[in-house]
Amino acid sequence: KKKPLTQEQLEDARRLKAIYEKKKNELGLSQESVADKMGMGQSGVGALFNGINALNAYNAALLAKILKVSVEEFSP
């Protein structure tokens, strides 16, 4: 059984999803295209955005690059 995410991890996910929602049209992104760039399925990206799975440093760095932001913008 997976450990529930901490409040901090949930807040990171909320900020990440908000940045994605704000930038997806400008950058021409969908959850599917983000998933392709990350080498995972769309459901995996959804789980990161919705605070189901915790972000690790690798995925955080990859998402920051895809969204053209710094990791600190969603994970201070």
Rank of each mutant, 00 (worst) to 15 (best):
A18N: 09
A35E: 03
Q42F: 11
D36L: 13
T6L: 06
K17L: 09
E11G: 05
Y58P: 09
N50R: 06
F49A: 07
A13W: 00
A13H: 03
L67F: 08
A60R: 04
R14S: 09
M38K: 01
K37A: 14
L67A: 08
Y58H: 15
V45N: 03
L55N: 01
M38E: 02
T6P: 07
N56W: 03
A13P: 02
L62S: 11
V71R: 05
A60Y: 04
D36Y: 11
A60L: 00
K37D: 09
K22I: 08
E32F: 05
E32I: 09
L55E: 05
L27A: 04
E21Q: 11
E8A: 07
L10V: 12
S33H: 13
L63E: 07
L27P: 04
L27R: 03
R14F: 07
R14A: 11
S33N: 09
R14I: 08
D12V: 10
Y58Q: 15
M40R: 03
V71I: 12
L27E: 07
L67P: 10
E21F: 09
A13F: 01
M38Y: 00
L55H: 02
L55F: 04
N25Q: 14
E72S: 14
G28I: 03
Y20P: 04
K65V: 00
Q9H: 01
K68A: 08
G28Q: 09
E11K: 09
Y58R: 15
A60K: 08
S75H: 05
L62D: 11
N53K: 14
P4S: 14
L55S: 01
L63D: 07
Y20L: 06
G51D: 06
G41T: 15
S30F: 01
K37L: 13
I19V: 08
E26H: 09
E72V: 10
E72Y: 10
F74A: 03
S70D: 14
G28W: 00
K22A: 13
I66Q: 08
S70C: 05
A35L: 02
G39R: 10
K3Q: 12
F74Y: 06
Y58E: 15
K3N: 12
S75K: 03
A35R: 02
L55Y: 02
L63K: 04
L10D: 05
G46W: 15
E11Y: 08
G41Q: 15
L63A: 07
G28F: 06
K1L: 07
K3I: 14
I66G: 07
K1A: 08
G51R: 00
S43G: 13
M40S: 06
L48V: 04
K37G: 08
E26Y: 05
K24P: 01
K17Q: 09
T6Q: 06
V34I: 15
A64F: 00
S30V: 05
L5A: 07
Y20T: 04
Q31V: 13
E8P: 01
L62H: 09
E32L: 11
N56D: 14
F49Q: 05
I19L: 11
G28D: 08
E32A: 13
L5I: 11
A47N: 14
Q31T: 11
P76E: 06
L5S: 07
M38I: 09
A13G: 05
G41E: 15
V69Y: 02
S33V: 14
V71F: 00
L29N: 02
Q42W: 13
L5V: 09
D12I: 10
A18D: 12
G28R: 10
F49V: 06
L27F: 03
V69N: 05
K1H: 06
G39I: 01
L48Q: 03
M40N: 06
R15G: 00
V69M: 00
Q9M: 03
P76C: 08
Q9D: 05
A54L: 01
D36Q: 15
N56I: 01
I66H: 09
A18Q: 12
M40P: 02
K3W: 06
S33Q: 14
K1V: 09
N53R: 13
K2H: 13
L27N: 03
Q9G: 06
G41W: 05
G28C: 09
K65N: 11
E21L: 13
K24R: 10
K2N: 14
L29Q: 04
S75E: 01
K17S: 07
L27I: 07
G39Y: 04
T6N: 11
L55I: 10
F74G: 02
I19G: 03
A60I: 00
M38F: 01
A57I: 10
Q31Y: 15
N56L: 00
K23S: 02
K24D: 03
E21I: 09
K1N: 15
E8D: 10
L16I: 04
K2V: 10
S30G: 01
K22M: 12
D12Q: 08
I19Y: 02
D36A: 15
A18S: 12
S43H: 12
A57Y: 12
P4V: 14
K65Y: 00
A35V: 02
L29V: 06
K3S: 13
K17P: 01
E26L: 11
M40L: 11
N53P: 03
I66N: 10
K22S: 12
Q31M: 15
Q31A: 11
G41Y: 10
T6M: 08
G41H: 15
K2F: 13
D36E: 15
Q42S: 15
V45H: 04
A47T: 07
N56R: 05
K24C: 07
V34R: 01
V71C: 06
A64P: 04
L55A: 03
